[in-house]
Each structure stands twice: as structure tokens, then as C-alpha cells.
């Protein structure tokens, strides 16, 4: 990122950001995105059984959560351990809005995203001045706080029992239940698509570059007029919106909400998606959510050994491939071009 000129305040500059050498132009990236998502959209034609479609839907949900986490963690360099709490807030916001306030589910999806944004802003305020390990500890504390509040307000949230029979989204008079998850697949895919376009547009924008500048050289960036507090707030708020929506969709899809979304095991899995995918790519997290979920599902027969093998895999990849799956792909493609040229 060092080649990018951040020396002038963004307000007076034209929108176009000078390209860093080796960076893909946005036209090519947009084309690749459209092709990629078009291919994904064709999948239900090939994959017709509802179990496989369910796995894909879960991949899309995890992909949204993981890639948004990559925004705050990879790009922002802020280790928000409460990211999964934003997802959980989406789950519970949707559940309560549709069940108690009887809000239209589609509107509730979006409102849940906004509530997650508000929560993200609330957790960012105490960490504005903090660094490193203290950010981890405070955001972790925040996640615990949210969980404790949900647990204690059992009259509304069902406490440890959770919430069941949550209203789901509807599409005119299409039957959501008996279409082998056809409609859910496309809703999930649309959500992933919107989230990915949003994230990539953000990180390619001037705002995105200033966020990275802060991460890489805080003192320099601040001396150049970038506000640490403002950018950190933007980063976390932006990473919350689709995370909250993903939570809401998860609730609508599963039709129940449980406190387990705040648990360590889900956080571990999603975090490994971010790190295995390689941070600061967005795409890496999505690819890793695909790889990890399929891997995990393919071991369904192993029963109790499944989490053990998953954990081992995570450790081994972290030890031997620090830059994650994207790093692996990059070095593989570099190797291929080299062997083609040479």
C-alpha cells in the first residue's frame, strides 16, 4: 500500500485512486465478480438436493460474516473479538422484531443490520484509544455483555432456551418450505453478492486506503490528517451491517435463535476462515468459508472426531502457511506464470 499517495486530504481530490502496481483494475475485478456470481447462481440447476443446498446457504452466511470480519481485522487491523456478537445481535434483533413487534420480515432483515451497526459504534467508542491486546479484551468483554444481557432478559429472549418459531421471509405466495431450499439459496447468494460488492468497493475507495494507511503506519497517517477515531468508527460500523443482516437471515432461515451463536466454537470457526483465507483480501475469507464448511460437512460421519480433525487442520495450516489459502493460491499462480514464461 505504500505506493499509494495519501498525502492530500481526500475532499479535494478526484475519486479515482491511482493504481498500485500489480493491482487489478476495478473493471476486471467487477467482471470477474459478475462471472463468479453468475456461476454460483447456476448451481441450483446442478445441485438439486436440499441438503447440498443447505450446505451452500451456510457457506454464504459464513462467507458474509467472515469477509466482513476481514474488513475490520485484515484491513482495519482492529481485532474485534465481538464480531460474532454483531452476528448474534442480528439473530436476536430479527427474532424479536418479527415475533414481538410483528415487523415485516424483509424490513426486519435490514433493520437488524442497522441495529448491529449501532452496536458496533457502541463497542468502538471504548476502544478508540486502545491498542493491541486491550482491543481484544474489551471487544471480548462486549460480546460477553451482550450474551449476559440476552440470557438475563429471558422473558423476551427465552434465556438459555432461545426463541423458536420465528417468522421467516416470504416471496409472494411461493412456498419457501417445499422448494428444496431453492428460494433461500438465492436470498443467501444475493446477500453474499451485495456484501461482497459493498466490501470490495469500500476497500478500493479512498476511505479504504486511508484505513489501511492507519493500520500500517498510524503516526504517519494521523500526521497526514487521517482521523484515527473516525476511520476506526467507519471500519467497525461498515463491518457490522451485513454481519447483522447475515444473523437476521440465519434466524429467518433456521427459524430459531439460540445463545450458541455467541459461543467460542462458532467464533473459532469463523475466525479461522478469516485467517485461513488470508487477511486483507475479502475473497480469501469467502473461499475459506467454502473450503472449511465443505471439509467439515464431508466429515459428518466422523462424529466426535470432526472438531478434532478441523482443529488439527487449522493448526497445521497456520503453522505451515501463514498467509492462508489466498497466499497459497497466489504463490501457486505465481509459480504457474513463471513456469509458463520460463
Amino acid at each position: 500500500m505504500s505506493a499509494v499517495d495519501t498525502s492530500t486530504p481526500s475532499a479535494v481530490l478526484p475519486k479515482a485512486v491511482p493504481l498500485t502496481p500489480g493491482r487489478v483494475s476495478w473493471q476486471r475485478e467487477a467482471l470477474a465478480l459478475v462471472v463468479g456470481f453468475a456461476l454460483l447462481a447456476l448451481l441450483p440447476l446442478v445441485i438439486t438436493d436440499s441438503y447440498s443446498r443447505h450446505v451452500l446457504i451456510m457457506i454464504f452466511i459464513y462467507g458474509v460474516v467472515a469477509s466482513n470480519w476481514d474488513l475490520s481485522l485484515g484491513y482495519g487491523g482492529v481485532f474485534n473479538f465481538g464480531h460474532l456478537a454483531l452476528f448474534g445481535i442480528g439473530v436476536y434483533a430479527y427474532s424479536l422484531l418479527t415475533k414481538l413487534a410483528e415487523m415485516n420480515p424483509w424490513i426486519a432483515l435490514v433493520v437488524s443490520g442497522l441495529i448491529a451497526v449501532v452496536a458496533a459504534v457502541a463497542v468502538t467508542v471504548p476502544i478508540l484509544r486502545l491498542k493491541g491486546i486491550y482491543i481484544i479484551l474489551v471487544t471480548f468483554g462486549f460480546a460477553q455483555l451482550v450474551m449476559q444481557v440476552i440470557l438475563s432478559q429471558s422473558d423476551y429472549t427465552g434465556g438459555t432456551q432461545g426463541i423458536v418459531r420465528i417468522p421467516t421471509v416470504t416471496w409472494f405466495d411461493h412456498n419457501m418450505v417445499r422448494d428444496a431450499k431453492f428460494a433461500y439459496f438465492y436470498i443467501a447468494l444475493a446477500m453474499l453478492g451485495a456484501s461482497t460488492v459493498f466490501l470490495r468497493a469500500l476497500v478500493r475507495s479512498r476511505t479504504g486506503i486511508s484505513i489501511v494507511a492507519l493500520r500500517d503506519n498510524e503516526e504517519y497517517a494521523v500526521s497526514r490528517g487521517i482521523s484515527l477515531a473516525r476511520q476506526r468508527l467507519i471500519t467497525l460500523a461498515a463491518s457490522a451491517f451485513f454481519t447483522g443482516i447475515a444473523g437476521a437471515f440465519y434466524a429467518a432461515y433456521q427459524r430459531n435463535a439460540s445463545i450458541e451463536v455467541f459461543g467460542m466454537s462458532l467464533a473459532t470457526i469463523i475466525l479461522s476462515m478469516v485467517l485461513l483465507g488470508g487477511t486483507s483480501t475479502i475473497y480469501g475469507a469467502i473461499i475459506a468459508s467454502f473450503v472449511l464448511t465443505v471439509f467439515s460437512e464431508s466429515m459428518a460421519d466422523f462424529g466426535a472426531w470432526r472438531p478434532i480433525i478441523t482443529a488439527l487442520l487449522i493448526i497445521v495450516v497456520m503453522l505451515v502457511y501463514p498467509s492462508g489459502i489466498m497466499g497459497m493460491l497466489k504463490s501457486a499462480s505465481r509459480w504457474m506464470t513463471r513456469s509458463r514464461n520460463g
Binding site: G132, I136, M264, L271, L275, A304, A311, M318, P322
Partner: peptide, 19 residues
């Protein structure tokens, strides 16, 4: 990124031992 990577490896190791 030692701090971060160790968070994930120790979390994974914890899950491994727990299971």
C-alpha cells in the same frame, strides 16, 4: 501477526483437547 495467529492456534488447540 504473532498475537493474532496465537489466538487462533490456541483456540484450535483448546477445541482439540476439549473434544
Amino acid at each position: 501477526n504473532l498475537v493474532l495467529v496465537v489466538v487462533i492456534t490456541t483456540l484450535a488447540a483448546g477445541s482439540l483437547i476439549e473434544n
